[in-house]
Design a protein around this nucleic acid. Structure first.
Lengths: 207, 207
DNA sequence: CTGTGTGAAGGCTTTCACAGCC
DNA sequence: GGCTGTGAAAGCCTTCACACAG
């Protein structure tokens, strides 16, 4: 099979690539892994995993399985998390500050490089260990540092305006925590995260 | 993986029910809304919305649209967020504490009623405004208070053990932030949230 | 014999067009 | 005229069985 174009990989498969990468990272000291084992660790079925990995190129060794180190490298490369990537935070309120303190994605190659807010002088944000700037400096910062990803944690009412500024500055990807449906031009990607929806979804299934 | 379906409503449709509910809540002072308008606010296409809402019962008025107040009530009722629901937090580390401070789902009907951790005496957690208990008291608390939902924010290495305790105590739904694939018996639902995966997913699409 | 790669089948969602009601 | 409800079609994704390589 010839090298597949980026858009030919199904959306759900791309999502599972991350699951596989996490599963591989949990395997210390293993050189080779079978589709059965890796699928179980990742929480999918073996045929699904084989079909997913087949999108990359012939990756496995029939009769033996997949080379852990090699597969880890290929997945990180495809996903774009092979090299560290800078992310900015827009909206340093409750949730934003919480995410800064959390920093749970640093080990996956993403680092918060700056925070932006209308009100930079909130005293209680002084201990965050993150440089804060006013929104007016967003554009120059993004352009000088080549930032391509942003986490949006502003109130819903100003989310679209903030997104517009991000897009104008050149940001290509937005992880949106605001309760709003963002309109962005083609070429810009938005992922929505809403913890209330996740809880609500759970509550439906336990009634 | 345990398949858990409460009715014949498609899984993705249930998820979008929450989107519609949020969209409706953003509409103040409107009595009636058309599928076109509501779909745009929610970020879906009109036929999709109509098909989704048709699962509930004949809800709309042909020629006029949907009654906002009525639809809001029906959706909240179906989703199980009509009445407040208590949620416990297991693992009061960095991310757990961040979620407590955030409390962004309180207005959606979910309230954190207690936190559990191996190490209850972390001094820096004193200002959380949430009662903390040791894990040993989890079972009795859950049973006495009739808690049915939990947010799991423990290290990946102990996530399965914590999930087992939750299941044994009678918890039916787990919002899992731990980097682990949880095994739970049928009748228990798990939703996984991984911010690193969301970022990684974005980074794929902007390469 | 072990275990991957893959076409084909099946299931689930989305989209569309239009009938039917206000 | 406006707008919902819905079967039929299309698209997408998952599952399976088996060919084939080591």
């Amino acid at each position: 099979m010839p090298l597949m174009q980026r858009s030919d990989v199904p959306r759900r498969t791309v999502y599972r690539f991350s699951l596989y990468l996490r599963a591989l990272q949990r395997m210390e000291g293993v050189e080779t892994v079978s589709s059965r084992t890796l699928a179980q660790v990742a929480g999918v079925k073996p045929p699904q995993l084989r079909k997913d990995l087949a999108y990359l190129k012939p990756m496995g060794c029939r009769g033996r399985g997949y080379d852990v180190a090699h597969l880890t490298g290929v997945l990180a490369d495809v996903l774009g998390s092979a090299r560290p990537q800078g992310v900015i935070l827009v909206g340093v309120g409750n949730l934003g500050a919480a995410l800064v303190r959390y920093q749970g994605f640093r080990k996956e190659g993403f680092e918060m490089v700056a925070g932006f807010d209308i009100d930079v002088k909130r005293e209680r944000r002084a201990d965050l260990g993150l440089v804060l700037y006013p929104m007016s400096e967003l554009r120059s910062f993004v352009q000088e540092r080549g930032v391509r990803m942003a986490i949006l944690t502003v109130p819903g009412a100003v989310a679209q305006a903030a997104a517009d500024e991000l897009v104008a500055a050149g940001v290509l990807a937005i992880l949106n925590f605001a309760p709003a449906t963002l309109q962005v031009p083609p070429g810009v990607v938005v992922n929505d995260v809403d913890l209330a929806i996740e809880l609500e979804n759970l509550s439906y299934f336990i009634q």
